[in-house]
Design a protein around this nucleic acid. Structure first.
Length: 319
DNA sequence: ACCTGTCAAGTCTGG
DNA sequence: CCAGACTTGACAGGT
């Protein structure tokens, strides 16, 4: 049973390696010609792709096989004013090169459209923006040549004081999505509205894989025991070619339990490993800590001192 | 070189 | 009912 570890989007160790360079709309529109505006955007996107390329090399050097791309690779990509910018044409070759590196290295790639991507909003314009955002993310993966194993993790959304109808709206809007987008989506339990048991039921209904977030479950659960849910959560991955995925992070402090701490307390993971051990199934762990790769390396160091944990490589444990 | 406010997104709380 | 909190990394402009 192998457990691979990864981190999110950027490195706190590599210098001058932001994959999220951007520009504000106000500053962009100070550039007079539309053509020059797009040149500026493309330049920033290429800087971001170059940083991400460095991150891939960094990952390879440390055997890291699980990585989430930033959603900000292309500045203002989903902004209404840039609707008709054909960025895949301009940046396609750059993304293809980036994607071929990921494929060569066996790097599992994902992305996480942010909290404002809401498929279940009662406001039609919000749903439309969410669909646009999903299409943007899918476009990047497609340009990179990544199949549907490269997935997009999203939350169910808001509760809008009526969870039953909010769930119905999610189901309806999900079913309307283009098939290739549906094939990329995985759903995650959140820390305020939709618990692991609720998301699991939804995933089973829609035949979508579920990402379990251990920290969120700790913040919000309806007297659910994760040991009872885990076999079914992992089973949502049975038809996938990639193993189940779990998110881990630690609460920032007693006052801000939902916020993410800089580092990860290994206790959270060790408790989970004791539950998962019985299932004897490979899975991947995404570390969501403010210190990013530095937090991952510290967690791996902490795990090295645990009895019964052997390392298959620098970032994979074997039980 | 550093510091502070702003951006960009939508929901939800509280006054 | 609207202003502010929430979240995040980086820009933008000032010292």
């Amino acid at each position: 049973m192998r457990i691979r570890f990864g981190y999110v989007a950027m490195s706190t160790l590599l210098k001058d390696c932001s994959p999220s360079h951007t520009v504000t709309l106000g500053n962009l529109t100070k550039i007079e010609s539309i053509n020059d505006q797009r040149k500026r955007l493309a330049t920033l996107a290429r800087m971001n792709i170059a940083s991400t390329t460095r991150l891939f090399h960094h990952n390879r050097a440390y055997d890291i096989k699980v990585f989430r791309l930033t959603s900000k690779l292309i500045p203002l990509a989903t902004h209404p004013l840039l609707q008709d910018w054909d960025w895949p044409r301009e940046l396609g070759a750059d993304f293809r090169n980036l994607g071929s590196l990921a494929v060569r290295d066996g790097l599992r790639i994902s992305a996480h459209p942010d909290h404002f991507t809401l498929l279940n909003s009662p406001r039609e314009e919000v749903v439309q923006a969410a669909v646009k955002d999903l299409i943007y993310h899918d476009g990047i993966f497609s340009c990179m040549g990544l199949e549907s194993a490269a997935k997009l993790v999203i939350h169910v959304g808001g509760s809008y004081k009526d969870k039953d109808n909010s769930l119905v709206r999610f189901i309806e809007n999900f079913r309307k999505l283009p098939t290739p987008i549906k094939a990329r989506i995985m759903l995650e339990n959140d820390d305020k509205s939709y618990s692991a048991a609720e998301v699991l039921a939804l995933c089973q209904q829609l035949k979508v894989p579920m990402v379990l977030d251990i920290h969120h479950h700790w913040c919000l659960n309806r007297v659910e025991d994760i040991a009872d849910l885990l076999p079914a959560i992992f089973a949502t991955w049975d038809e996938e070619i990639v193993p189940p995925k779990v998110h881990i992070s630690s609460p920032r402090d007693d006052k801000n339990i939902r916020a993410h701490a800089d580092y990860i307390d290994p206790v959270f993971l060790l408790d989970f490993l004791n539950i998962a051990r019985g299932l004897d199934r490979d899975f991947d762990v995404m570390c969501e800590a403010k210190a990013k790769d530095a937090a991952l390396f510290r967690l791996l160091d902490d795990l090295k001192n645990e009895k019964g944990l052997a390392f298959a490589d620098q970032a994979t444990i074997e039980i």
